[in-house]
Design a protein around this nucleic acid. Structure first.
Lengths: 183, 183
DNA sequence: TCAGAGACTGACCGATCGGTCAGATCAGTG
DNA sequence: CACTGATCTGACCGATCGGTCAGTCTCTGA
């Protein structure tokens, strides 16, 4: 059963992604991942310090893109421009990283409290502000939060829809649904 | 420590609702609930057959309303009427039972597979069909799913918003966002 | 007075969790 | 040949999980 290939690291990541997507982060044990890879649980923990490190490695690229989107939104001159950039950027992120986002499905609240995702919560609040057109109206904030959560929660379901089509549908939805900023 | 009052049943339900809302169903242990009530874990299991029975008792009223909404939608003469009834009925349900729905946050996928919620999955698929105007277009189905999931996932966050205001905002959002049925 | 029912407790069970550890295997290097 | 470092294993750890069980306490009605 000894594996001579040192590519186990990548195999573990791929297996973990499949299991997390199927049964969630909490619902997946290290033994589940090890079984899927075909190695021992100890081998998994040889390549990764702990279970959280596996999730971190899987989410790192998406988090980096989210961070840069946050910077771009902050650099916009006004609420209207910020809303447009936020909508387009978030849809692009959701489409490109839908499989990664799907890993977090239903566990956003708990997972966001882990130190790795410490900044994400603040970023998502700024994202909601931008989508709501910096408006303090309750309806604008409700709309923004529903759309943000809805897209994040469901984008993983559309694995069979082409990027272009999914992106167009989501962007059209945001354009119809978001309330224009008061000026 | 012996409690002479036989109202523990209700206290357990209330405590479980608080804990489930705070840390989710999986993230709440029977011991957590018992500690919150101020009794032993065995006492909790004296009043309820098992952990799932507590969740079932908490969700029963909301499930009953969802079932009747499903019936009302099926009785509509055409896609346009069905879409309108589905939108209004779902918003009403989300607003009235937002605290109950919040208990399931992030655990819909796993919880829906439990026998208690066996029918819910089919009902929610019919709900999506109705909201999508019975359309087979991908964009219509994407829109319906995003809105349904977004509302279900977030309605618990607006505990401080009055029913009327929340309902108006959500219904207005649905009216703006949903694609009209093809006829 | 006392039997019995309802309410409840503490101790315990097997299973599973994330994680540790000593050691085995093996390829490469001098 | 000896040695080293990377890879991996099986056995094990303490903690926690949902759930069981025998027995205790209190109240009530005959």
């Amino acid at each position: 059963m000894a594996r001579t290939t040192p590519q186990t690291h990548g195999e573990i990541l791929a297996a973990a992604a499949r299991r997390f997507a199927a049964t969630g982060y909490r619902g997946t044990s290290l033994q589940d991942i090890a079984t899927e890879v075909g190695c021992s649980k100890a081998a998994v923990l040889y390549h990764f310090a702990n279970k959280e490190a596996i999730l971190t490695a899987l989410m790192a690229p998406a988090i980096e893109v989210l961070r840069s989107l946050d910077d771009r939104i902050s650099a916009q001159p006004g609420p209207a421009a910020a809303q447009r950039v936020a909508a387009e950027g978030f849809v692009d992120l959701a489409v490109r990283f839908r499989s990664e986002i799907a890993l977090l499905r239903g566990e956003f609240p708990e997972l966001l409290q882990q130190p790795v995702f410490a900044h994400i919560q603040q970023i998502s609040e700024r994202l909601i502000d931008a989508l709501a057109g910096q408006s303090a109206r309750a309806s604008a904030r409700i709309t923004a939060l529903v759309l943000l959560a809805g897209i994040a929660e469901t984008c993983g379901e559309f694995a069979d829809v082409p990027d272009q089509e999914l992106g167009d549908a989501l962007l059209a939805l945001l354009r119809r649904a978001l309330e224009p900023p008061v000026h």
